[in-house]
């Protein structure tokens, strides 16, 4: 259940390693967070060293030094003036530094996406400039580089927290609320994310990836989001007859379930199981046959009733959903 550093190499090809790099900003909404984090870390270390030095004096110093440390002046300076000045300065500087992060008004210049946290995956609803839904997907967000992306973050059940450390800050998804967060990538690439608020069971296996494209690649990706029409075959038949369609939608087919991730383009995703496995015919078959062994307590049952031939037919069909 615990995703350890050494055990997640299977997603290194999809993401930028595990855990997601937290001190390696890749956009303007992550840089201030990183700067502030370093300032807090180094400043905190310096203050800790000062306190230890004072403790050393109190324990082992000469009587004269001890008297000075315990004097009224030292307490006014070290106990009152120093923290007041440092903490006030830090607050003002921190608010100024991170003011761009909280400027989450819709200006029309940004891309808009609604992301809904579920136990234990992510619904991704792309929106137009007016906030109308244009496309549904899951567990993977595609964005153009150099453009701010305004995320509306909601949850369908418990509190989750959306966090793609290299692209922006961390924002809780709270029941009954819509929280906003800006992210942006300055370079094309794959950026790993992770649910950052314990949400039960396989919380540690609730990953996410953001794929940042150049403008041309993004336009090409967007144009490719058209479901295949009028398709038939054994894989689809089995998908419909085995119960998959009760929870999953494949646009352009009678499969319209809403409980699980939309699978219209599942074959094009870089990961399976919400950012935890690479996506290939082997992992697809393994996930369908026994998702419980991989991500215990997730809502997808093990499909032990499928024969080997049926399992391969369904997984091959899904892998082809590009």
């Amino acid at each position: 259940m615990i995703l350890r550093p050494g055990s997640s190499l299977s997603v290194t090809s999809a993401g930028s390693g595990w855990p997601p790099a937290v001190f390696d900003p890749a956009g303007p909404y992550s840089e201030p967070v990183t700067t502030l984090a370093w300032a807090l870390l180094l400043g905190g270390t310096a203050v800790f060293a000062l306190v230890l030095a004072a403790l050393g004096v109190a324990l082992f110093g000469s009587a004269a030094l001890k008297a000075r440390l315990g004097g009224e002046k030292a307490i006014w300076i070290g106990g009152f003036a120093f923290p007041a000045v440092v903490l006030t300065g830090l607050l003002i500087w921190g608010l100024m530094l991170t003011s761009s992060l909280s400027a989450t008004r819709v200006t029309g210049a940004e891309m808009r996406v609604k992301i809904i946290g579920e136990m234990w995956w992510w619904r991704v609803h792309y929106q137009d400039a007016e906030g109308r839904e244009t496309l549904r997907d899951a567990n993977e967000l595609h964005i153009p580089v150099g453009k701010p992306v305004l995320l509306e973050l909601e949850t369908a059940d418990v509190i989750h927290s959306f966090w793609v450390p290299r692209l922006g800050g961390k924002m809780d998804m709270i029941p009954g609320r819509t929280n906003r967060l800006l992210i942006q990538a300055d370079k094309p690439g794959v950026y790993k994310g992770q649910c950052a608020e314990y949400c039960g069971g396989p919380h540690a296996l609730m990953g996410f990836i953001v794929v940042a494209h150049t403008a041309e690649d993004f336009a090409r990706w967007k144009a490719s989001r058209v479901p295949a029409r009028g398709e038939q075959g054994r894989g689809l038949e089995l998908f419909l007859s085995s119960g998959c369609a009760a929870c999953h939608t494949i646009r352009g087919t009678p499969a319209t379930g809403l409980a699980g991730p939309d699978l219209t383009h599942v074959g094009s995703r870089q990961t399976l199981g919400a950012g935890i496995l690479p996506n290939n015919p082997g992992t697809m078959a393994g996930w369908i046959a026994d998702a419980q062994a991989i991500k215990p307590a997730n809502r997808m049952p093990a499909y032990h009733q499928l024969s080997a031939e049926e399992l391969l037919a369904v997984s091959e069909y899904l892998v082809r959903r590009k």
């Binding site: 615990i2 995703l3 350890r4 050494g6 055990s7 997640s8 299977s10 399976l272 935890i276 496995l277 690479p278 290939n280 082997g282 992992t283 078959a285 393994g286 996930w287 046959a289 026994d290 062994a293 991989i294 991500k295």
Partner: peptide, 15 residues
């Protein structure tokens, strides 16, 4: 490649 999605692999904790 995620062989662990179906197999227990020696020396690999998860999956």
């Amino acid at each position: 490649l995620g062989c662990g999605a179906c197999h227990e692999l020696p020396g690999i904790d998860w999956p």
